[in-house]
Amino acid sequence: MADHTTESHIILHTHSQRVRILAGDTLIADTRNAIELREKGYPHRHYIPKEDVDMVKLSISSTVTHCPFKGDSTYYSLPDIVDVAWSYERPVDDMQAIAGRLAFDAGKVAEIVE
């Protein structure tokens, strides 16, 4: 995937470095196939394919939000961390590259990029 910029000033690009997500000492995700999303006014986010996330540890929460530039999001929780991650299952057309991938709240988990 080449860098892709949308009218909303969102830039998507492939991220070939290893990205690991840890909740305490527990590994939640480990990938070399992340997509980095950069959006003006927000921290960079890594969207990780579900096959690289330990989905058994996560449960869908009741939180749902809407972004006019990305679409409706579904949130996920760990047993002891509410709304730790989110996913756009059916994003708007310009954001199809992040469909079904998870982004994690860096304030609630450790993200290690190598």
Rank of each mutant, 00 (worst) to 15 (best):
M1G: 13
A2F: 15
H4Y: 09
T5H: 12
T6D: 09
E7H: 08
E7S: 12
I11P: 01
T14L: 12
T14A: 15
H15L: 07
H15C: 11
S16C: 09
Q17L: 11
Q17W: 00
R20P: 10
I21C: 03
T26F: 01
L27S: 02
I28K: 02
A29E: 11
D30I: 03
D30N: 14
T31D: 11
R32Q: 15
N33W: 01
A34G: 10
I35R: 10
E36A: 15
E36T: 15
E36M: 15
L37S: 11
L37I: 12
E39D: 05
K40Y: 13
G41D: 10
G41Q: 06
Y42D: 09
P43E: 13
H44S: 15
R45E: 13
R45T: 08
R45P: 01
H46A: 09
H46V: 00
Y47C: 00
Y47T: 00
Y47I: 00
I48F: 14
I48Q: 08
V53I: 10
D54F: 12
D54K: 13
V56E: 15
L58H: 03
L58I: 04
L58W: 04
S61F: 05
T65I: 07
T65G: 03
T65N: 06
C67L: 04
C67G: 04
F69H: 12
D72H: 07
S73K: 03
T74G: 02
Y76D: 00
Y76Q: 05
S77W: 06
D80C: 06
V84G: 05
V84H: 02
V84E: 04
Y88P: 00
Y88Q: 02
E89P: 08
E89S: 07
R90M: 05
V92C: 04
D94V: 09
D94E: 14
M95G: 03
Q96E: 13
I98C: 04
A99C: 10
A99Y: 10
A99T: 10
L102D: 00
A103T: 07
D105R: 09
D105H: 11
D105N: 15
A106Q: 09
K108W: 07
V109L: 08
E111N: 04
